Amino acid sequence: MTNTLRFPPADPATAAAFFAAELAFDADPEDVVRDLRAGTAAGFQLVETRGAQAFADARIPTAINLPYREVDETTTKDLDRSLVYVCYCESFQCNAATKGALALAGLGFRVKRLSGGITAWRAAGYPVEGALSGATCAC
């Protein structure tokens, strides 16, 4: 038996449900940039969940900065609850986006996480604003 098939695949209906559920939690950078370029990003807001210095250094255009450590009722009181908040951080190796999304969801906001963070965004050649002084995680 092959290693790949040692554990049998799920039936198609179970696989479809799993992958649909996975997509409910993550947004692809390409989908986000297409919406931004087309002007169809009205239903979501990008949220940089790293610290203020990281946001100043490099951020995705239109993003707001809400460091995950600061997410609470006070810092979110002016956020539009009808929007989906797409949280991002540095990369797959950083979990600030996950922590930010968790905190926002705990306060009743609808959330997604941007796959790969700003590192994947930059690697794809998408626009970045800020001083661009580096790509270190300043969570």
Rank of each mutant, 00 (worst) to 15 (best):
A21C: 11
V47M: 02
R69K: 11
D11C: 12
A131P: 10
A138V: 09
L5R: 00
A131C: 05
A52V: 12
P127F: 08
D28W: 00
S91W: 02
E90L: 11
F44G: 03
D35A: 00
A38S: 13
R37V: 13
E73P: 02
L132R: 12
A97Y: 08
F55D: 02
I60E: 02
A97E: 03
A103Y: 14
T14Y: 11
N95F: 07
A96N: 06
P61R: 00
L102R: 10
W121N: 00
R6W: 15
D26P: 08
T74R: 04
A24P: 02
F25H: 12
N65Q: 08
F92Y: 05
R122Y: 01
E48V: 00
L132I: 08
E73S: 05
L107E: 10
R50H: 12
S115Y: 11
A138I: 09
P127G: 04
V71K: 09
K99E: 03
K77A: 05
G100S: 03
L102M: 13
A21G: 15
L132P: 09
W121G: 04
L107W: 04
E90M: 08
A15Y: 14
N3C: 08
V33I: 13
S82F: 06
T62C: 07
K99N: 04
R50L: 11
A54V: 06
A124T: 01
L107C: 07
D80F: 10
T75F: 02
A97F: 08
A96W: 05
L66N: 04
C87W: 03
V111Q: 07
L102D: 07
A101M: 07
T4N: 15
F109N: 00
G125S: 04
F92K: 12
K77Y: 01
R37E: 15
